[in-house]
Simulated assay, not measured.
Amino acid sequence: MRIGVIGTGNIGGTLGRALARAGHEVKLGSRHPGETSDGPEVSDLSGALADADAVLLALPAGGLEDFLAEHSEELGGKLVIDATNRIGAPVANAAAQLATAAPTARYARAFNTLGWENFAEPVFDGVPADLFFSCRQADRAVVEELIIGVGLQPAYLGEDKQDLVDSLLPLWFALVQANGGNRHVALRVLRK
């Protein structure tokens, strides 16, 4: 799969490297395309979006509005996986902003409730952590493939459940604080 990762920081860079190791063709999109990477190619934002089957938004929330204004047409019809967290805003996800800017884009909410440390090392005592996500049923298999490619276990919450996914974010922060600031903590659903 061709994946455009928008953002080269801890989240975008770590996910981009993991997805490339899983065999996907990954381009990291940056406002500073001269950056070097120890993984996938770094291009400008349009270069990362061109020909992408899926787009992973991993940019700081402050850059989201400008990104959507400049690249809304390039997102049309694509699966857009929202890993941004608009901390302090009434809603953490960018579902409404994406729907307004690119109404034909297909929205998924994933990769936003764990720290990048869990994407770099997703296995705890031989068991992968769960990653909770929401998307249209028609896109579920694709999103699950990407989650598995990172080394995590997909935990599907249903369609239009981005707010439910977001509700796990304060829980993760509380677990980090309860563990003395250790960000390498995650959740696991036990199944029988």
Rank of each mutant, 00 (worst) to 15 (best):
Q162D: 14
L169C: 08
K78N: 15
A186F: 15
A174W: 04
P60Y: 05
G47F: 11
G7L: 01
P90G: 09
A54W: 11
V165M: 01
A61Q: 03
D163P: 05
G7R: 00
G115E: 08
L171R: 03
V26K: 01
N112L: 04
G34A: 07
P90A: 14
R21L: 12
R2H: 03
G62E: 10
F132K: 02
G7V: 01
E65G: 14
G151K: 11
R109P: 05
V185D: 09
R188P: 09
L49F: 10
F111V: 13
D66T: 09
G180I: 09
D130A: 11
A83C: 10
G77P: 11
V91Y: 09
V176M: 15
V185R: 01
G77F: 04
P170F: 11
E144D: 14
G47E: 10
L146Y: 02
L45C: 03
H71N: 15
G151I: 09
D160N: 06
A92F: 13
P122L: 11
P154I: 01
L15S: 07
A108S: 15
F132V: 00
K161V: 06
P60D: 05
R183S: 14
V55Q: 00
G16L: 02
C135Q: 10
A94V: 13
S167E: 03
V150K: 08
N85C: 10
L175D: 10
N118G: 14
T100L: 07
T104N: 08
P40T: 06
G158R: 01
R191E: 11
C135V: 00
A155G: 05
T113H: 05
L146A: 02
E117Q: 15
L15P: 05
L168P: 02
L98H: 09
H71Y: 15
Q177P: 00
A108F: 10
D139R: 11
V165N: 09
L187T: 12
T84I: 15
T113I: 05
